[in-house]
Design a protein around this nucleic acid. Structure first.
Lengths: 217, 217
DNA sequence: ACCTGAACACCGTTCAAGT
DNA sequence: ACCTGAACACCGTTCAAGT
């Protein structure tokens, strides 16, 4: 046995297995084997597989680097958004878990608390802070789908038969000329640059809204 | 047998089953049973379960209502974004599939083509169109996670033992006062209103960028 | 071409038994 | 309290056989 069993050790072994072979290949038996233990021993520390995956996610979220305490809210939020994206890139196979399990352990919430603090320091009230945080969270989670889930790059799956045809076929070129023209452009985008583009739009919008509300940020 | 087997009939049965009992409860045997057939008969029409789920997703995306052909780009994109969200709300259990399988059949791409057309009519070039579409897609997919995945409402899962504690505990109130204060606010947000808020920020940003590029939109 | 039931190689989890 | 192997009730998919 590699190390004394415990939530942390088990979640770390699961994360390593996911990094190596993907979430789909993860099984309780597989983790146990990697730890030199039995599948059922894991149930001493996690009530079920879902909780274990949640535990892995908390581990991931704890890796998100918090911004410096004195940062301007714009720099702080940019810092956090980039940090989440980087954790996803560091754990490409595990990133999808971030969409499923929100942060809820103290370690995983450090960056959230820091982000809230940056907003409040700048004069955002609780409602504005929640509103801005939500918009950023939506954009961040969607970015994971697009970049790590290969939303635009996924080979278009062929559904043959019936009257159905796929992109790239002669008739779809005729019916969907702009999809045919712009689709490839979406594949070739620079992920980092496009991420920054949308992020700055949102931050600009928050700043404008605050300015309109009569406060300087 | 309810109706002659085929991709469409099978995908519709699968969607009905997912609507009723969720993606997790869907099995090839279950669909076959609903259709009065055998699990293996499905493999005549889909190579595997993943393709079938993709087919269900194309069905969902084909439900997305396209905007009127003469709409201003802003109205067109607002229309599409709301339409996607409404399909998700109509199929709460199936909505998660939208994140996994991009549109690729002609029917499912109708709204995409219409969106591209609206941008191009307004003078956006191919690159700007791709860029704006991507930012909106990220926001839309992330919204599904937050609203339908219950990102903020999910009961904080308890991870006991070790030095770990959860939100709401005495010590996290001390360590994470703003999470404690603002967390409940996130739960109580009006989903539709918050969705509109972030959406308009992005649309404002596109308009500003176009204006700065010297074009009137 | 289309459909079938049996079988294979897995799952997560319950259980009864051990320490 | 912690860990175990066997067993249960499932999976998706392959196969050999049918029409």
């Amino acid at each position: 046995m590699a190390s004394k069993l415990g939530q942390r050790v088990i979640a770390e072994a699961a994360l390593a297995a996911i990094d190596a072979d993907g979430v789909e290949a993860l099984s309780m038996r597989r983790i146990a084997q990697d730890l030199g233990s039995s599948a059922m021993s894991l149930y001493t520390y996690f009530p079920d597989k879902n909780s274990l995956l949640d535990g892995v996610t908390q581990l991931l979220l704890a890796e998100v680097e918090a911004p410096p305490e004195d940062a301007h809210w714009r720099d702080a939020m940019r810092h956090i958004m980039r940090a989440v994206r980087l954790v996803g890139l560091r754990h490409k196979n595990a990133a999808v878990l971030i969409r499923r399990f929100p942060p809820h352990t103290p370690d995983a919430l450090v960056f959230v608390e820091a982000g809230f603090r940056a907003f409040r320091r700048a004069g955002f009230d609780a409602l504005s802070t929640a509103r801005c945080y939500r918009a950023l969270a939506a954009y961040s989670l969607g970015t994971i789908d697009i970049e790590l889930g290969g939303y635009f790059t996924a080979e278009s799956r062929v559904i043959t038969g019936n009257a159905r045809e796929d992109i790239g076929s002669a008739s779809s070129d005729r019916l969907l000329p702009l999809v045919t023209e712009i689709g490839p452009t979406l594949n070739e985008q620079d992920d980092a640059a496009e991420f920054e583009y949308g992020l700055e739009l949102l931050l600009d919008g928050f700043a404008d809204a605050m300015a309109r509300a009569g406060r300087t940020v």
